[in-house]
């Protein structure tokens, strides 16, 4: 079960607890047909239990690659990624991915079978427990009516909720979400963000969330890692735990939004200023 987390641990400024996930000077590279691309360059950050840790940055800043590195689909060419003090050497069910694509659900399994599948495949749960757990988490994402339905009959938002339920039900150490709401329409996205926050409030899981939306980052996260592109590097780490949907229109929110916006686009503004003189 998820341990009780005191407010102090959930917001570990200066607290002495050990980090759950430690990324230490990680450089990730991948090969295309013609190039060796350095996606991230010497990235450092630490994630603590109960964090809603956001990786934010423009296209090409290597945030999705970073997530794949943590998931174990890629290994760092330099530096280490440690989870619970163990170096990550490959994919495993202690880190559950939620992808952006809707086809992450298996079309040959019903909603319940989909949620049960990782629990059974990893032999972490018995069939009976897996079923109980599946039903509990399907209810948590409000899909009880669709337990025995096949994925092709669900809408995009519902599919993502199943994927989230499937990841949550595993009770993994950390949830890795790669722009899970990016393919949804704006209204559904808003509802899903709200739901995710409620689920977090309820279950206090640890989540790493990749997004390119500044607003989404501020609302969902308690801490944001701002990354800059080509190659991906750390630009800043910010605390945003005080913001949610309710104060979205507020002065503070806007100020922070503009601050991050300037951080992300500073390079471009410099380039534009330089242009007339050239």
């Amino acid at each position: 079960m998820i341990p009780e987390i005191t407010e102090e641990v959930a917001e570990p400024q200066g607290s002495a607890t050990r980090p759950l996930l430690e990324v230490d000077g990680a450089t990730l590279q991948y090969k295309t047909k013609e190039h060796l691309v350095t996606a991230t360059y010497r990235i450092d950050f630490k994630v603590y239990t109960g964090d809603r840790f956001i990786l934010l940055g423009p296209t090409g800043c290597g945030k999705s690659t970073m997530l794949k590195g943590i998931a174990g689909f890629m290994l760092p060419d330099e530096g280490t990624i440690r989870l619970n003090d163990g170096v990550i050497t490959g994919p495993g069910p202690n880190r559950m991915m939620v992808f952006q694509e809707f086809d992450q659900l298996f079309p040959w399994k019903t909603v319940k079978q989909n949620v049960m599948f990782p629990m059974l495949a990893s032999s972490r749960f018995s069939r009976k427990d897996a079923e109980k757990q599946a039903i509990r988490f399907i209810e948590k994402v409000n899909l009880s009516k669709f337990t025995d339905v096949y994925p092709h009959m669900l809408s995009g938002g519902m599919k993502q909720r199943v994927a989230i339920a499937r990841a949550l039900a595993m009770e993994a150490d950390v949830l890795l979400m790669d722009e899970p709401f990016a393919a949804l329409d704006a209204l559904t996205r808003l509802a899903m963000q709200e739901e995710l926050l409620q689920l977090w409030d309820d279950l206090r899981f640890t989540v790493l969330f990749v997004t390119h939306s500044i607003e989404e980052a501020i609302i969902i996260g308690n801490r944001i890692l701002v990354m800059s592109p080509h190659p991906g590097q750390v630009k800043a780490e910010l605390n945003v735990h005080q913001f949610d949907h309710d104060n979205q229109g507020g002065e503070e929110f806007k100020k922070l939004h503009d601050k991050i916006h300037n951080m992300l686009f500073a390079d471009r503004i410099l380039e534009e200023e330089a242009a007339p003189h050239a």
Binding site: A71, F73, P91, G92, P93, R95, M96, M97, F99, E101, D103, Q104, F106, P107, W108, F117, P118, A121, S122
Partner: peptide
């Protein structure tokens, strides 16, 4: 699809279990 492959590997499936549970079903 790559997403489905990664999802399967994420759950720790390898070798014959990966082929049987993911590839054969998805390529059915």
């Amino acid at each position: 699809s790559n997403t489905m492959r990664m999802a399967g590997r994420n759950y720790g499936l390898t070798g014959i279990r990966y082929v049987g549970n993911i590839l054969i079903m998805a390529a059915f």
